[in-house]
Design a protein around this nucleic acid. Sequence first.
DNA 1: ATCGCTTGCCTAGGAGCGCTAGGCTACTAC
DNA 2: GTAGTAGCCTAGCGCTCCTAGGCAAGCGAT
Lengths: 194, 194
Amino acid sequence: MARAGVTAERLTLVAAELADEVGVENVTVAALARHFGVKDASLYFHIKNARDLRVRIALLALAELADRVAAALAGRAGKDALVAFADAYRDYARQHPGRYAAMQIDLDPETAATSAGVRHAEMTRAILRGYRLAEPDQTDAVRMMHSTFHGFVSLEKTGGFRHTPRPTDDSWSRTLDALDAVLTNWPPRSGAAA
Amino acid sequence: MARAGVTAERLTLVAAELADEVGVENVTVAALARHFGVKDASLYFHIKNARDLRVRIALLALAELADRVAAALAGRAGKDALVAFADAYRDYARQHPGRYAAMQIDLDPETAATSAGVRHAEMTRAILRGYRLAEPDQTDAVRMMHSTFHGFVSLEKTGGFRHTPRPTDDSWSRTLDALDAVLTNWPPRSGAAA
DNA sequence: ATCGCTTGCCTAGGAGCGCTAGGCTACTAC
DNA sequence: GTAGTAGCCTAGCGCTCCTAGGCAAGCGAT
C-alpha cells in the first residue's frame, strides 16, 4: 500500500488547479481526495476543514499574484508601472479564475495581516510615488485603483460587459488612461468643477 | 391542514431576506422550507432547483436596485446625478449584503437581457449625457464607473480596506470626486500626458 | 351537490458532501 | 528491534439537493 504522499502544500496546489478548472464552489474535500486517490476523511489530517482549504487557496493566490505584480513592476515608474500592475492583475485573474475567485474570501484580520495582501497595498503605494500624492489622498487613490481593477475584472468575468459589443481590452486600456489622468491631476476636495 | 400559501414570489422575497441575514451561501432550499413550516421537497413545486432560487433572488435584487437608483436620479444631472447613483448603489449593497452578493451570479445571456440589469446600463448612460462623451468613450466610461462602484463596494465588504484606518466614507466621496473629474475631462487615446 | 381535476402539500428515499471517532499499517528514531 | 508517530483506512451521523409517487383541499362544470 504505497502512500499517496499528501502534504498540505500539494493539497493546496492541486485544489487551486481544480478551482481554475471547475470553479471554487466545486472544490470539495471529497473531489480533492479523489484526485489523490484517497478517501476524503484522510485529508482532515492535513487540513482543518473545508473553509481552511479555501483560505489556503486564497493565500496561495495572493502570494502568486503579488509575485507576478512585483515582477511586472521591476524597473518601471509612472504610467508604465500603473499599466504593468493593472495588466499583471487582470492577466492573473483571467488565467486563474478559480484562484481569483478564491481570493475574495473574507479572511480574518490576523490572517490578512500576514498574507501577501499587504504586499499588494505596498506595491500600489509604490506606484503612487510617481504621482506625488500626499496623505490622505494617497490612501484614497490606492482604494480607487484597487476598486477599479477588481471591479473591472470581476464584471468582465461575470459577463457584466456583455451587453455592449465593444472589446473589453479597449475599455480596459482607456480606463487605465483615465486612471492615469486622474492620478496625475488629483482633484481637490469636492468643490465647484470646470 | 391549512395550506402554507407558498408562491414563487413569496419564496423569493423570504429567500432574499434570509440572504441578508445569514449570507447567500446559507440560503438553502431546506432552510427556506423551514421558514415556511413546510418540507423541502414541497418547494420544488414552485422553484426548479437551488440555482433557480438564487437566480430569482438576483433578479429581485437587480430590480430593487434599479428602482432605488431611478428614484435617486430623479431631477438630477451632472455630478449630482453621479453621486446620487453611486450612493444609492452603495447604500443598497450595505443594507442588503445578501441580495447584493446574490446579484453577482452569472446569469445566462437571455435572462440577463430581460433583467433589470439593462436599466442600470441605461441609467448610467443617462448620467453621462451631462458629461458630453461620444462613443466609444461613453461605453468605456460606463464600464469604468461600474467597475469603480462595484469594486469599491465589494472590497469594502470583504474587508479589503481594513488595513488602513481612514474612514471608507471619506475615500468614497473622494473617489467620486475623482470620477467626476475624469469624466469632465476625459483623456485622449493613450498619448503623452500633462 | 358532487364529480372530477388541478394544486399544494406530504412521505420515502437516493446520492453527495462535511466531519468525527477509532483502528490498522508503514516508516522513522533510537 | 522496539516505540512512537505519521498516514492512511472504515464506519457512521447529519446535512444538503432532488425525484417519485401519494393524498387531500379546493376549484369549475355538470
